[in-house]
């Protein structure tokens, strides 16, 4: 038992990482921060639309998309499609993920509109079926598909490979995965800024959205496609299941602390920063999965926010309405759609 939880050695956990391995750990924290921020932003819209579990579904059903894309690539030009490391691999990965997201979204929609199967069951059937198909594809075509189901599920931020650098005018700027994630994060930020109104209105009030001429279906489709891009950029560092945590936990924590959407978005950034930094140190202390530790830290922050929320609600109820307060009335002011 004692060997399970190592002693808390300040030198090893807090000092050495920033003296001897500073570059490596810096990139890890930055990567975790970028993944958590991007996922958190996109995930906030999923939360608002009550589709948090679509993230779960997409993150699983991307597996057959990736397997299929690698398979097709290896049939088209044998011997060139290797791994996710090079540019071609990345293109193939993104195309496969987009196709998988499209198929999943359409299938789920079709299942629950064309039959009496409810949406939750439709989600469960589609993603588990596709995931199983993906596992089988990977096992059967193990030679052509350079993927590992375990790797897709777990992912590990420490093994992402920070050796290949993205170069700009001859100088190393950032490791490739970090650079890619940074681009996705910037695009997400730009996307939210550009389509803030459309996303906001169609998330809060689909009726108003359609009367304003916003095509809710298109917003939904683009959100799902972008979600798949974010997931596929994130999953090699955190794995398919922890992506779900990255999508939900920051937004859920932030929306317990604030009711204004712009403030929620800033809180998500703060949450991402704290959980990636403290997560790294937690992982160094316990010597466990870094991505897992980051999510555990994020969940810890959620629990803190939850407790403070509960205490605040208790106190407010005692102060203003000692009796007759229906539970949840004070606790639930809906998120107000303030402009940015």
């Amino acid at each position: 038992m004692s060997s399970l939880v190592p002693d808390f050695d300040v030198q090893r956990v807090l000092v050495t990482p920033w003296t001897s391995d500073a570059t490596m750990n810096g990139w890890i924290v930055l990567m975790g921060f970028l993944v958590a921020t991007t996922c958190g932003w996109v995930g906030q819209y999923l939360l608002l639309r009550r589709m948090a579990l679509m993230g779960d579904a997409l993150s699983h059903s991307i597996l057959p998309g990736l397997a299929g894309a690698f398979l097709i690539a290896s049939f088209l030009n044998p011997g060139t499609a290797d791994g996710a490391g090079n540019a071609r691999g990345a293109t193939v990965m993104y195309l496969g993920a987009l196709a998988a997201a499209l198929v999943t979204t359409l299938l789920i929609h079709w299942l629950h509109t064309a039959s009496r199967v409810k949406q939750d069951a439709a989600i469960g059937i589609v993603f588990s079926g596709l995931f199983a198909l993906g596992v089988i594809l990977i096992t059967v075509f193990a030679d052509q598909v350079d993927l590992d189901a375990d790797c897709v599920l777990y992912g590990e931020i420490g093994t992402v490979g920070f050796t290949d650098y993205f170069q700009l005018s001859g100088r190393d700027v950032a490791p490739l995965p970090v650079a890619r994630m940074a681009i996705v994060a910037l695009l997400t930020f730009a996307w939210i800024q550009l389509f803030y109104k459309e996303l906001l209105v169609s998330s809060f009030d689909p009726g108003l959205a359609s009367s304003l001429g916003i095509r809710a279906n298109w917003v939904h489709g683009v959100l799902m496609l972008w979600l798949s891009v974010v997931i596929v950029s994130a999953f090699e560092s955190v794995g398919a299941i922890l992506v779900v945590a990255m999508l939900i936990v920051p937004g859920a924590t932030a929306s317990l602390l604030s009711t204004s959407l712009p403030r929620i978005f800033s809180l998500i950034v703060l949450h991402a920063a704290i959980s990636s930094l403290f997560g790294l140190h937690l992982a160094l202390w316990l010597d466990c999965s870094i991505a897992g530790a980051m999510v555990v830290t994020g969940c810890g922050l959620f629990v803190l926010a939850w407790l403070s929320h509960v205490i605040r609600v208790r106190r407010a109820r005692h102060a203003s309405l000692p009796q007759d307060a229906p539970p949840g009335t004070l606790a639930s002011p809906s998120v107000t759609p303030n402009p940015p």
Partner: peptide
């Protein structure tokens, strides 16, 4: 019961949070 988070968010939080602890 104690927050305004919806069913899907609660399920996702438990799914991912517990799973992360498990992975660690």
């Amino acid at each position: 019961r104690t927050t305004r988070l919806k069913e899907d968010a609660a399920l996702g939080l438990v799914l991912a949070g517990f799973y992360a602890v498990g992975i660690c």
